[in-house]
């Protein structure tokens, strides 16, 4: 793709006119100049929307990394790619951007901006319920939870499924109540383990 064409695609992405495939193609290539441009565009758009953006964050790189990770599982299943694959890509792009926002939020600014940016994840939540790939992407890549689904190895996985909830609960209880007084944090952790 020529430089002109690339930058044209970039504008299209910024105007939400491009699809994920286009974004994927653009950011997958190792083109620092293009990424820099994308970051600048992002910044400009943020300024227009009166959003606060941390200029140091290379969100383009994060998105690019998310796309690279996504490529592997998407390849072998040509058939499912159109549906789930697209959602997965879209979700992890959102996550990469969100991760940047979160990082920035740790510097703690005023409430309104926070609320405004926090509104983003709700867009991806419906998608998250559609498949395990999407969920794994949504959890910022930490949940490299066993890729084996229940269908793959049911009897073997059952062993863990029957025990893990009880183990986790016992650990959380000990942490929360086993050591005299502490802050309410371990209690909240224990309570959160009870949710289904």
């Amino acid at each position: 793709m020529s430089r002109e064409a690339l930058h044209e695609s970039l504008s299209a992405v910024m105007d939400n006119e491009a699809d994920e495939l286009e974004l994927r193609r653009m950011l997958a290539g190792d083109n620092p100049e293009l990424r820099a441009t994308w970051s600048r565009y992002q910044l400009a758009r943020a300024a227009m929307h009166k959003e606060l953006i941390e200029p140091r964050l290379d969100i383009a790189a994060a998105v690019s990394a998310a796309l690279a990770d996504e490529a592997a599982p998407a390849q072998p299943r040509r058939s499912g790619w159109k549906g789930l694959g697209r959602l997965a890509v879209a979700a992890s792009v959102t996550v990469a951007v969100l991760a940047g926002v979160r990082l920035y939020n740790q510097n703690e600014v005023a409430g309104p901006q926070l609320a405004q940016q926090a509104a983003q994840p709700s867009i991806s939540v419906p998608q998250a319920s559609q498949g395990s790939t999407v969920l794994a992407g949504y959890s910022e890549g930490q949940a490299e939870v066993p890729a084996q689904t229940a269908a793959d190895s049911a009897p073997i996985e059952r062993w863990h499924e029957e025990r893990l909830p009880s183990y986790v609960r016992q650990h959380a209880q000990q942490a929360a109540f086993g050591s005299g007084s502490e802050s309410a944090l371990p209690y909240a952790r224990a309570a959160s383990m009870e949710e289904r």
């Binding site: 930490q142 949940a143 939870v145 996985e157 062993w159 863990h160 986790v168 959380a172």
Partner: peptide
């Protein structure tokens, strides 16, 4: 019993078998 190793992560809490 034939059981494979497993690992999972729930926010800050990790579980490794």
């Amino acid at each position: 019993a034939l059981v494979e190793d497993a690992r999972s992560q729930m926010g800050p809490t990790v579980a490794v078998s």
